[in-house]
């Protein structure tokens, strides 16, 4: 039997709009993955520590407040410091095209912008995690 993919869904920053994060968490779980949802107002440090403790292969960050350029690069740095570069980071939310391109240059595996379908996201996670 295949071991389920483990995903941490995290909501960094001060924003409380968790509709998207919760829908994604549920969709990944319904697709057979093991999902840990951090809840609100997580600092990059808290997120990376949770990822380490939960031994996840994927971190999904949901950011709608415009703070992604401050938060996401910090998460990537911390992952690197802890030798966790193999953990794939995906970002969802209101991310302008030019910021999405810049985040990908910093090692983010994918950025899902408004209108992305659950199917696309589930498929991407399956394809990106080595079986």
């Amino acid at each position: 039997m295949r071991v389920p993919i483990r995903v941490l869904v995290a909501k960094p920053g001060l924003d409380g709009h968790d509709r998207g994060a919760k829908i994604i968490a549920r969709a990944l779980r319904d697709a057979g993955m093991e999902v840990i949802y951090t809840g609100l107002r997580q600092t990059p440090e808290m997120i990376v520590n949770a990822a380490l403790q939960e031994d996840v292969q994927v971190i999904g960050l949901s950011i709608l407040s415009g703070a992604h350029n401050a938060i996401v690069p910090r998460v990537m740095e911390l992952l690197h410091e802890k030798d966790m570069d193999d953990v794939k980071v995906i970002v969802g939310g209101i991310i302008p095209d030019e910021d999405a391109a810049a985040l990908k240059k910093k090692g983010v595996a994918a950025v899902f912008q408004p209108g992305a379908s659950l199917e696309q996201i589930v498929d991407f996670v399956r394809a990106t995690v080595p079986a």
Partner: peptide
């Protein structure tokens, strides 16, 4: 510290 990146955004 918690305001980092969020000031004036929303």
């Amino acid at each position: 510290a918690m305001s980092e990146g969020e000031v004036g955004k929303c």
